[in-house]
């Protein structure tokens, strides 16, 4: 059962992922990307990461992609705005990415035999556990992330505000 679910979600993720980059219209790309994110959220659920599942939906699907969509709409980007890349470039891009894939897969081929660890804890992905780790072991990065946000905020405001000439 879970296996089939996995294959379904994996298929969905890859298909929609491909559509993201093949689709001419940016809005469609965004929508496909959202589906991909949902599929990944499904994977998180399969992997007992319940909290991340909801966070994935909230942050990626709910906030980040809305922003994308918002900007695309704001700028009214239609498919006509993107000129064709020459076939050569496309070919080269496809070749290089394909090579990367082949290399990575080949490199990690041995990982198939990775043994399962001793115990699995189904409750690990619950907010309670994660909070425990986040606020003890990862306290400093957590606080540091606020610095990141502050910087991003100042930056976005600086770029976004219109100058008074």
């Amino acid at each position: 059962m879970t296996m089939y679910l996995f294959y379904f979600l994996a298929f969905l993720a890859i298909l929609c992922g491909l559509m993201v980059i093949l689709e001419k219209n940016p809005v469609h790309s965004v929508l496909y990307l959202i589906i991909t994110f949902f599929a990944l959220a499904g994977h998180y659920l399969l992997l007992n990461a319940q909290f991340l599942f909801i966070v994935q939906i909230m942050v990626y699907a709910g906030a980040i992609m809305v922003l994308f969509l918002f900007v695309i709409m704001l700028l009214n980007l239609n498919k006509e705005t993107e000129p064709h890349k020459s076939n050569l470039v496309k070919f080269a891009a496809a070749i290089s990415a394909g090579l990367l894939l082949v290399v990575l897969v080949a490199a990690m081929k041995g990982a198939e035999t990775l043994p399962a660890p001793a115990t699995t804890n189904a409750d690990m992905g619950l907010v309670k556990n994660l909070g425990q780790v986040l606020f003890t072991q990862f306290l400093l990065p957590f606080e540091t992330a606020s610095l990141l946000f502050l910087a991003a905020m100042v930056g976005a405001v600086m770029l976004g505000k219109r100058d008074i000439k």
Partner: peptide, 16 residues
């Protein structure tokens, strides 16, 4: 057990 987050998540998707 994370009902509130679910709520926020669904709300955020609702805008689509």
């Amino acid at each position: 057990n994370i009902g509130i987050l679910y709520l926020l998540g669904i709300t955020s998707v609702g805008v689509y």
